[in-house]
Amino acid sequence: MDRITAAERSVLMTTIRAKGTKPEMVVRRLAHKMGYRFRLHRKDLPGSPDLVFPSRRAVVFVHGCFWHQHPCCRKSQLPTSRQEFWHPKLARNVERDLATVSALRAMGWRVSIVWECEVNNAERLRERLATFLEEVASCSS
């Protein structure tokens, strides 16, 4: 049973943003501090990636663990109420993510996904971004 009314739930859900989320801002600030320059949310690419590094043919998506169902993450547990609604909705998100990654790779782009739970460890995230972006640079040389 839901503890809040449908109207209250609607107001709560409208506050959830797709762009400029806290995890995305952490990744953007870190990448910029590391000296990488990027474009944001290019609509001409499948899935409108969060960070696009055109010269490196690389894109980074910053996914919320719940909304994109991060495997083995406790934040990705399905709600106990209205599972008939949530399960198909979240499964569609996962399917769309797989199709987006496939389409980008078919276009010659390298893809990295940073999960919301991974942004808490700045040093590990820094190493991961550097490895991903430098690997892309060395492949194109």
Rank of each mutant, 00 (worst) to 15 (best):
A7T: 07
G108W: 01
R110F: 05
T80G: 15
A99N: 10
P46G: 03
R17C: 04
D2G: 10
P88K: 12
D2F: 11
V136R: 15
V111N: 12
L78D: 06
N93F: 07
M1W: 04
V111I: 10
F85M: 01
S81E: 11
S140H: 09
F61S: 02
T14N: 15
V60P: 03
V52I: 05
P79L: 14
P54I: 00
R126Q: 12
E95G: 09
E116D: 14
T80F: 05
Q77L: 15
R57K: 15
R82Q: 13
V111H: 13
L129H: 12
K19G: 00
D97L: 11
S76L: 01
H41A: 03
S10D: 03
F53N: 07
K22R: 11
E135W: 11
M13T: 01
P23Y: 02
G35Q: 09
R37E: 08
M34D: 04
S112M: 13
D97E: 13
T5F: 02
L30C: 00
W109K: 02
R29G: 09
E24V: 02
R74H: 15
I16M: 09
R29C: 11
R56C: 04
S48G: 09
W115G: 05
P23R: 00
A106N: 08
V11L: 13
K22M: 12
F53H: 10
F53Q: 08
L98I: 07
R128I: 03
E8F: 00
M34Q: 10
P79E: 13
S140E: 07
R3M: 10
R17V: 09
